[in-house]
Nucleic acid binder design. Structure first.
Lengths: 143, 143
DNA sequence: TTAGATGCAAAGGGTTTGCAACGTC
DNA sequence: GACGTTGCAAACCCTTTGCATCTAA
C-alpha cells in the first residue's frame, strides 16, 4: 500500500489536484482491483477505510479523476457506469451472461484510426473496441 | 411510406409481434432518419403522427423492438441512449464536439473476433467499434 | 489563510412500471 | 373473446448539486 500511496501522491501532484484522504482512498481502491467496479462498489470498499465518506463524494471524485485522466469511465448497454483504474486506452471483453468486464491483452491499433480517417474524412482522436460473448466461467455452467 | 409500411409489416410478422399503430410509427420514424436519435426525439416525431402517444409507450416499444433485433441501442459516455434503425452490426463515429453519431462505411471485421478469441480463450459473439474525434462540420467552426 | 473538498440530503432526469381502458388478432 | 398494448402518472434509481462545515497546502 505504501508503493501505491507514493504513486498516487505523484499522480495527484503531477495533475495539480489536491490530495484528500477520500480521493486517495478512492483511487487506491480502484487501482487495487481489475473488476471494473461501479461507483457503488467503490463506495462500499472505501467505507471500510473511511466509514463517513458519502456517495456524493465518491461520484465527485470519480468525475474529477476522470477529467484529469487518472481513470476511465466505461458505459455499456443497459448498465450503470463502471470505472477502470487503467487510464490508458485498451480493449475490453464483456460477458453477456455474468456482465463481468475483462481486459483484453492486445495492443491498440493506431493504424486503424489513420486508415479510417483517410477513408472517411473524419479527424479521429481514438477508438473504443469491445468484444461481447461468454466468458470461460459461464461457458461451463449447467443450464 | 407505403414501401416502408409493407417492410415493417413483414418485419413484425416475421418476429411474431403484434403490429400496433404506435409500434409501426416508432420504427417508421427511426428507419427514416440516420440521426441515431434519442427516445425523446423519436417521441416528438411520432407525436406529429399520433399526438396522444405517451413517452412510456415509446420506451416500451423501443425495448421490445430491440429484443427482437429490429433496432439497436447505442450507449455512449455521459449520454442518454440513442437508437439505430439499422439492426446490423456496423461501426460509428462520434463527434466529440457536437455529439452527433455517424455511420462508418467499413465492413465489420469478423476475422478480428476469431483472432482475439483464439488468443484469449473468450467465446466472442461480436464486437463493437466506435471512433471518436471531430467531424468536418465542427472542424471548420471558429472558436 | 483560503480556495477547494466534504457530508448530508434533496433534487434531477432518463427510464420503467402499475393499472384500468383499449385494440389487435 | 383473450390477451397484448396503451396512456397516464407515479415510482425508480443512478447521478448531480446546494450549502454549511471542514481541510489541505
Amino acid at each position: 500500500m505504501d508503493v501505491i500511496d507514493k504513486e498516487l501522491s505523484r499522480a495527484f501532484r503531477s495533475k495539480n489536484i489536491r490530495m484528500t484522504r477520500q480521493r486517495r482512498a478512492i483511487l487506491g481502491v480502484l487501482r487495487s482491483t481489475d473488476l471494473h467496479p461501479t461507483a457503488d462498489w467503490i463506495y462500499e470498499k472505501v467505507r471500510e477505510i473511511l466509514p463517513n465518506i458519502s456517495l456524493g463524494t465518491v461520484y465527485r471524485n470519480l468525475n474529477i479523476l476522470k477529467e484529469h485522466e487518472l481513470l476511465r469511465e466505461l458505459n455499456y448497454s443497459d448498465e450503470v457506469s463502471h470505472f477502470d483504474g487503467n487510464a490508458e486506452n485498451h480493449y475490453h471483453f464483456i460477458c453477456q451472461n455474468c456482465k463481468r468486464i475483462f481486459d483484453i491483452d492486445e495492443p491498440v491499433d493506431i493504424q486503424l484510426d489513420r486508415r479510417i480517417s483517410s477513408k472517411t474524412g473524419f479527424e479521429i482522436d481514438h477508438h473504443r473496441l469491445e468484444f461481447y460473448g461468454i466468458c470461460p466461467n459461464c461457458k461451463d455452467l449447467p443450464y
